[in-house]
Design a protein around this nucleic acid. Structure first.
Lengths: 336, 336
DNA sequence: GCTTTTCGTGAAAGCGATTTCACGAAACCG
DNA sequence: CGGTTTCGTGAAATCGCTTTCACGAAAAGC
């Protein structure tokens, strides 16, 4: 049924060939240092000669460690279209593979604490888990309590003790606003993402901090809460233009809304960036292929993935880790 | 080191509670029908009561079946940005999960036959593999020879005996051209993808077939071979406009090139779709968020994934399968 | 009605690693 | 220099499930 292999070598054969016991083979292969140097060499030689590779299932059964790290994706429909998780998973996978660990993909709705995925994770079938697109903390808390090594992508809402990786959303937003100011823009609006989301919140914080520190006059009504959608971009851009005739820049919390805003601006007979400059966030495919080219804040998504993987490896290994914030970079194109 | 569980129930406990032997428990849990009905019920009841879940590693060790299906992604850099594989992997993952199988992600360069991934696959650590973005057939052939159940996404180059899933690329292209003709377009050019790629080839075939069947006059030089990039779209659109002043439509083999073409057309002072209509392929994020809205051929990517998963399940189960071609759908927006 | 199949079942032998435990040798101690 | 530790090592138990095998009972065949 399964593929037939020319039966793989086992510890028994290595032990015989190297003239040691199976226990010693295990010690060598698991990096136990308290083994005679000659024996280590002998075992390694035998391993080499036989082309031996560990049988994962057997190792997992005996040791309780599976060599698997789950990448958990909270599945709502938006996920299908968003290249973000592809990139981050890619980064994770590379790092894990280098360390002989495998990436197990778990895509499922996580709303319930007793969902199949939740149960699966509690069952010890993976050595650790990396959560992407986290909406609620409850499951994580539960798992953390059970000592499952965990890393979260994105800053958690509550100040919980779990480690996370995130982009410097505030810093990226700050850089965007600074760029606009340097270009002489005076009335800079922002269309935020869904503010339930910590990333959206942080980007708003960065915008507000920049406005303050760079001495922009405080104007009411320049911040509009969007929901990441193109429609929100269009709608809010229209409103903003109407309410603020002197509006000369809009910073959007993602590229989709930025493109929506640009469409609305052009529709209104104004030009980008001459009349109104626009900056997006993510430097997605969209920004790179839009016309005119969208200036946007780039996150190092693959880097986030690699960092997350390194953290989980450390945790599994029993080391302490601290959360990581990766810098963002402003990519300047034509719209600002 | 690994998470500590309150020790899970085992066959021993189920057997005792149900008053049968462990062998019978195994039979029931693996769907062996030749067991007394009462005993089946008793076992199921015990399983329920104890909240038992099979220990995968143990089952894998004993049976040689791992319950894992590898999703293999040939890793070149473009993968990072392309939402395609995220969507298809998502489709795969859902179906597998429903069948208690797990999705193992393998992202790595596959150029060599002795790469780590290649070795891994040959080692029987997965029950089957689904290949995405296949560039060369050699590895697949090797694995097929070793009886590893395989499904490929995309039509293979050579007519090999492995099963595959693909979109009806030719049909999609045909529909695009037909739409253009129905809109009264007379001089329809095509910018293809990299023609080493079977999808690009099939889309070209569809275009050519449509031209012929719909009675378009044969004009030399209306087909330009691109490479999927925005730059190719720009460049070829410029050339085409120059060589064919009466050009009134361009069909592109993907959305990225279509957006490039549109940029070039606008740059040349012409309008879309009034002067020149443009249709892309993929109905990606880009098409949905572009301005003006890009008419594009949609593939059912998640459907491809689900189909691939069903096929691999059948193969693992020992059933025969036949390759699947899923229909494409033209999504009409503003550019054509 | 007696032999031959078939059928359901449990005992027990793996699957291939890991890990505990005990033992002899070497190193350390006072 | 006797005695206690430490150290490297192998034998053997173990992980939890699957599967073969043999056996008694029931069904079928003559």
């Amino acid at each position: 049924m399964a593929a037939k292999q020319k039966s793989r070598p086992t510890y028994a054969e290595i032990a015989k060939l190297a003239g040691v016991s199976e226990a010693t083979v295990s010690r060598v292969l698991n990096g136990d240092t308290k083994v005679d140097t000659d024996r280590i060499a002998a075992v390694n030689l035998a391993v080499e000669k036989l082309g031996y590779k560990k049988h994962r299932a057997a190792a997992a059964l005996a040791s309780g460690r599976t060599g698997l790290i789950a990448v958990v994706i909270d599945d709502d429909l938006s996920v299908f279209q968003d290249p973000f998780w592809g990139a981050i998973t890619n980064g994770i996978s590379r790092v894990l593979m280098e360390h002989e660990m495998q990436t197990l993909l778990l895509v499922a709705p996580l709303e319930k604490l007793d969902s199949p995925v939740a149960q699966y994770l509690q069952r010890g079938e993976v050595d650790g888990a990396i959560f992407l697109q986290l909406h609620k903390d409850s499951l994580i808390k539960l798992l953390a309590k059970q000592n499952l090594p965990l890393v979260v992508n994105g800053t958690p809402h509550t100040s919980n003790p779990f480690s996370y990786v995130d982009s410097d959303n505030a810093g990226g937003a700050f850089a965007a606003v600074r760029h606009l100011v340097e270009k002489g823009r005076k009335t800079i609006a922002m269309i935020t993402g869904d503010l339930d989301n910590t990333a959206a919140e942080q980007r708003l914080d960065g915008y507000l901090a920049a406005c303050q520190e760079l001495g922009l006059p405080k104007v009411k009504g320049l911040v509009a809460e969007g929901d990441w959608s193109r429609e929100a971009g269009i709608q809010h851009a229209q409103n903003l233009m109407q309410k603020h005739p002197d509006l000369d820049a809009i910073f959007c919390s993602n590229d989709v809304m930025a493109l929506g805003a640009i469409a609305a601006i052009l529709e209104a007979g104004k030009s980008v960036p001459e009349d109104i400059a626009v900056i997006g966030f993510d430097d997605s495919y969209l920004a790179q292929n839009s016309h005119p080219g969208l200036t946007s804040v780039r996150q190092d998504i693959v880097g986030l993935g690699m960092e997350a993987a390194n953290m989980i490896l450390a945790l599994v290994h029993g080391d302490e880790v601290h959360s990581e914030i990766l810098p963002c970079e402003l990519v300047i194109r034509e719209t600002a």
